[in-house]
């Protein structure tokens, strides 16, 4: 009975979750990790003309510690993989990853000895954007989709694996 209030119908927790989600989705601070061509289009998307800041991606920080969304734009080579892993590890939870462009998604045309075939095998990716490079609109669309995903998240459940375990047992 104790868990009844938390288990979905709980008004307070749902509202708290909504509040958290609202806050998170309105300020996805990006870490623009542009390594190659897609970085230039990402620059366009961030700069005037498209202005990603309209969706709350206002503060572009170049340190992973203060970012929520890792926008991986460009090729990741095998030499770079440890660096990418490190950046991802340095980001604080909650964190999301957008893979921009063919190279980041799957290696693209560079099916070669030195290119990592997609960053999905290295770090978890939330959104894949095909294109080589995608238009700035394509990047903005992905950001909007990411915001949708953040809004549908359950931050309080996710943070407490033990609680979920208990709930599962309760059922």
């Amino acid at each position: 009975m104790k868990f009844q209030a938390i288990q979905g119908e709980g008004w307070l927790l749902t509202k708290a979750e909504q509040l958290i989600n609202w806050g998170r989705s309105r300020s996805p601070w990006p870490f623009p990790y542009g390594t190659a061509c897609c970085g230039i289009e990402l620059m366009c998307a961030l700069a005037s003309g498209y202005d990603m800041a309209r969706f709350g991606a206002e503060r572009v920080a170049f340190t992973p510690r203060q970012c929520d969304v890792l926008i991986e734009a460009g090729t990741i080579t095998k030499k770079m993989v440890p660096v990418l892993k490190r950046i991802y590890a340095q980001m604080a939870e909650p964190k999301w990853v957008i893979a921009v462009g063919a190279c980041a998604c799957s290696g693209g045309v560079f099916r070669t000895y030195s290119t990592q075939q997609g960053i999905g095998s290295v770090i978890p990716v939330d959104i894949y954007i095909p294109g080589c490079p995608p238009r700035p609109e394509g990047i903005l669309y992905a950001l909007l989709k990411l915001i949708d995903k953040i809004e549908a998240d359950h931050p309080l459940y996710k943070q407490r694996p033990k609680l979920i375990e208990a709930l599962e047992a309760y059922k």
């Binding site: 993989v81 440890p82 490190r86 340095q90 000895y113």
Partner: peptide, 15 residues
């Protein structure tokens, strides 16, 4: 062309 499956590992622990 596609290499022999080399991966780069740093000799110290990251993360």
């Amino acid at each position: 062309l596609e290499g022999k499956g080399e991966e780069r590992h740093l000799n110290y622990d990251i993360a």
